[in-house]
Amino acid sequence: MKLGNLLIAGLISGSIYAVFAVCIAMWFRVSNILNLAVGDFAMLGALGTDHLVRVLHWPTAPAIVTVIVACGVGAYLYDKAILRLALDGRRRQEGIVITFFFTFALSFFIEGLAEVLFGTNIYAAPTLWQGNSLSWGGLHFERAGLLVLACAVVSGIAFTAYIRYTLSGKAVEASGESYVGASIVGIDTRRYRRNIFIMTGMLAAVFGILQSPLTGYAFNSGGTIGFTGFIAAAYAGYQKPGRAVLAGVAIGVVESLLGGYVSTQYNDTILYAILAALVLIRPSAMGLDVAVGG
């Protein structure tokens, strides 16, 4: 039973990484930019909902809708105001590292904003599926955990199907592969970039609301949690949403098993050492054998 419960715990914490990994991979596929701020959207979702419900006494449903829409609008404005200038302006910025810094700055900005708005304590959005944890044999499932897992699986499958079975999904891939090549067949690469950015921002917010009852969020949780998603996405070469989900879940499971059987003190150290070794041994298998220019 220990193994079973460790696996469940791993699956659920892995789902957290997985959702962020999907968001990062999808947007990288269309824009070739790594989004470090995706975890901060989750934090905004969780703390925003909590603030509306707990402090301003809104009912839960309108609060959630308002917060998700607000995240979408924020993402839209950021694209219109900053990304357009940085990527489509006269001084175009290219290269993974420099564009990464824009989302890095966005992450700082959102965290700073959240600190002003919500303070520094840890809060969580209201639990959506209330009740005791479900038991089956000796296995225990927390209800929020199941929601989280479902969210990860659904978003992974949905994005994979989108890319594989729709023309607009293929247009997303084309946008990331070649700007000129996509433009000449009528693909509006900027619109795709914006839409996916908004979509992943909103998905992260939804996810933050679902997941926050498990761990709680503070203004600066987003960066750390998004960072692990960022690492998980690396194992999908920042390209494939389906593989990003698998990688995220696998990392969660390994982490949980290491904690249960090897060492609770050094489990993270060992986990990251394994992950680093994987990248160093088989970089081409992960699609990471490209130069980092700019």
Binding site: Q265, Y266, T269, Y272, L275, A276, V279, L280, L288, V292
Partner: peptide, 28 residues
């Protein structure tokens, strides 16, 4: 000798883990 054999993005990603590994060690 090990890490600089990795190509561009792989080195960046792998070395991203080093601060995490070190944090895990130092805090314990």
């Amino acid at each position: 000798r090990i890490v600089t054999k990795a190509p561009g993005l792989a080195l960046a990603v792998a070395s991203l883990m080093f601060p995490l590994i070190a944090t895990g060690y130092v805090t314990s």
